[in-house]
Simulated scan of single mutants.
Amino acid sequence: MFAGYLTVTLFAAALYGMAAIANLIGHDYPKSQADTLGVPRSWMPLLGVLLAAGALGLLAGIAVPILGTLAASGLVLYFLGAFAAHLRANDHHFVPWTFFFCTAVAALAVNLTCR
């Protein structure tokens, strides 16, 4: 069971770490998503920091389990907020969101079941 936990956690941390970097360096994809959803571009660094905190929290959760659970919970809430932004903007392109959200849910599930 620990191998599954470790696999999901490392994958999720890498995924959200890359997403955080994309937000922080101002990559075109997060900018275009922000424009589509009506999110101010000034929020991009903050959103990147939140994603980075989630990724680092997942990694820290390997040593301190409560940190991993809190980080995974925070990422689930983050992507529920992203879902609300999609609905508010009447944007129904949910494939990328679904991938990120399901990864956060999987990270939360393995944190809760493995510890």
Rank of each mutant, 00 (worst) to 15 (best):
C102T: 12
S42W: 13
F100K: 01
G61M: 07
H86Q: 08
F101P: 04
T98F: 04
K31T: 12
A55N: 07
H93M: 06
A3D: 09
T7V: 13
F94H: 05
A84D: 11
C102I: 11
A106G: 05
P96H: 09
L108Y: 06
V76N: 04
L37W: 05
V49F: 15
P65D: 01
T9Y: 12
P96N: 13
L24E: 08
L75K: 13
L112D: 06
N23R: 10
G68L: 01
S42L: 08
T103V: 15
L47H: 09
I62V: 13
S73A: 15
L24W: 06
P45K: 09
T69Y: 13
G48L: 02
F101W: 04
A71R: 00
L37T: 03
A107L: 04
T113E: 14
A53G: 07
A53S: 10
A3R: 06
S42F: 08
V8T: 07
M18T: 00
L112P: 11
L58H: 05
L37G: 04
V49K: 15
W43T: 07
R88N: 12
A3V: 14
A19S: 13
D28Q: 14
R88L: 10
G38H: 07
V64L: 14
M1R: 11
F79R: 06
I25D: 01
L51Y: 06
T98P: 03
A13S: 10
A14W: 14
V49E: 07
L50E: 03
A19M: 12
P65G: 04
P45Q: 08
G74P: 02
A20V: 00
K31Y: 05
G17N: 12
P65R: 10
M1I: 08
P40L: 07
A53N: 06
V49I: 15
F99M: 10
L50T: 04
S32N: 10
A72H: 08
L15C: 05
L50A: 12
F99E: 14
G57S: 10
